[in-house]
Structures are given as C-alpha cells and as structure tokens.
C-alpha cells in the first residue's frame, strides 16, 4: 500500500472520529482543536510507517509508529506540549468506533470459513483470549503490589 493511500484512509476515518468525538465523548471540545489533534496523529502515524519502510532491517510497523509517537511527547521533544495538548482533544473511544465498524463490515468474508469450524474450537478460542487477558492481569496485580505502585 502506498503512503498516500494510508494517509487518505486515515483522513476518511478522521471525519468519523471527529464526529464521534463531538457527539459521543467530548461535546465541549471545539471541533477545530479535535481536527488539529487528529491531523497531528495522522502525521505521526505516517512518519512511523515511513521510518519502517526506509530502514533496511524489518521490525513491525507497530513498533516504529509507537516509537515516533512516544518520542514526540517525551520531555526531550520540543513539540511535546503542543502534541499533547491537541491529541488529548481526541478521545480514544472516538478512534475505536470507526475501527470496529470496519471490522464488522469485514465479517462477511470469514463467515463461510467460520461455518466449517467446530463449536469446540469456538470455546477454545474464547479461553485463549480470556487466558491471555486474565493471566497478564493477575501477574500485573501481584507485581504492581510488590513495586508499591498500587
């Protein structure tokens, strides 16, 4: 996929995220500020994807996008305050709704394959997701206590 395609796709979803932000999560935030916040995040995301492409060794895009995003707001970053101020205006949940809408719209392509799966594997799948969530939570609970964070 071309970088421009990534950018356009992020902008299309941005319309939805900004509307959702206003309607659902941050009614008091001016739309203009949310738009700026969203555009800053688009820029960070595209830089992250770009970095992954130009480097000769391969690490997941998720890693580079994270690194660019984190660096942009660490205390050493000259633009940290601006980035934090504006990106704060876009609620996390406002970004989630369009993503899961697309996830839903993709469901049809997997239904035929799903019909071939035994109900037993469905139960196993639920245990797999529950297991990874709950065991990590349990370890975190114990360790956070030991470290005195909670």
């Amino acid at each position: 996929m071309k970088i421009t395609e990534y950018g356009l796709m992020l902008l299309i979803a941005g319309v939805m995220a900004v509307i959702g932000n206003k309607v659902g999560y941050s009614p008091t935030v001016p739309v203009g500020e949310a738009v700026i916040g969203y555009l800053i995040m688009v820029a960070i995301t595209l830089v992250g994807i770009g970095v992954q492409r130009v480097l000769p060794f391969k690490l997941p895009i998720v890693f580079w996008v994270s690194i660019v995003a984190i660096l942009s707001t660490t205390p050493i970053s000259p633009i940290a305050k601006t980035v934090t101020y504006y990106t704060d205006k876009v609620a996390f949940l406002a970004l989630c709704t369009p993503i899961l809408a697309y996830a839903g719209l993709a469901v049809g392509k997997d239904l035929e394959d799903f019909k071939k799966i035994s109900w037993k594997i469905v139960i196993v799948a639920l245990c797999v997701y529950t297991g990874t969530f709950i065991f990590a939570t349990m370890v975190a609970q114990v360790m956070l206590h030991i470290e005195g964070v909670i």
């Binding site: 979803a13 995040m41 994807i49 998720v62 996008v65 994270s66 995003a69």
Partner: peptide
C-alpha cells in the same frame, strides 16, 4: 496504527 499513535503520545 492510529490507536497505536494515540497510545504512544
């Protein structure tokens, strides 16, 4: 990736 960015900032 946008979620990752939001979490990163």
């Amino acid at each position: 990736f946008m979620l990752i960015t939001k979490l990163g900032v």
